[in-house]
Amino acid sequence: MDTNTTTREHEPLTIHHTSIAEQDLKKDQTTFFGFWIYLMTDLLLFASLFAVYGVLRANTFGGPSGADIFSAPFVLTETLILLTSSFTMGLTMMAARANRKPLVLAALAATGLLGLSFVSLELSEFIKLIAAGHGPQQSAFLSAYFTLVGTHGLHVMIGLAWLLALGISIGVRGLTRPNMRKLLLFSMFWHFLDLVWIFLFTLVYLWGIL
């Protein structure tokens, strides 16, 4: 480390200098850590929604229950799409490390397209349910279901907007330090969404179908 520490013998309070390069690295590390903390708060957000769903899932108030409206093949498709998008995100990171901008953009685009398909599928399911009269206003179970799954979907949509902005930035400016940092944060966000989905498809859909 190219720091410059001025010490006097046993002095309890001295001076320290940090170079600009060190400061830059520290800033990126701090941002990375800060984003991790944000993800922890998002975990709590989803935990609260899961708790609400867990309490209200039996309250169908005469309307349909999970078994009535969930379709395993449909959810499996959504799950595989999201999982694959997580994988293509990994490919993006590998390409970024190798400083191969065209590959980064291609893998990012693949991630985006898969994400878009996921969101479209989810939206189509929601629209179908609402059209059949089984919207979130029908029962507490449906309110909880739409809100929990919808919040995840909203996170994915925000992720897609972020992905677009990031893609444009990388396309125009290349793999600069800020873009590398943003890629790092975005990849954590995207993988986090797949982590939450694991519990969504298990606890909501699969347990609902059982």
């Binding site: 690295l25 990126d28 590390q29 990375f32 400083n99 600069t176 330090r177 590398m180 940092r181 790092l184």
Partner: peptide, 10 residues
């Protein structure tokens, strides 16, 4: 930025 090292360093 050295992309090869970036993710490792940060």
């Amino acid at each position: 930025v050295d992309t090869q090292q970036y993710f490792e360093n940060v």
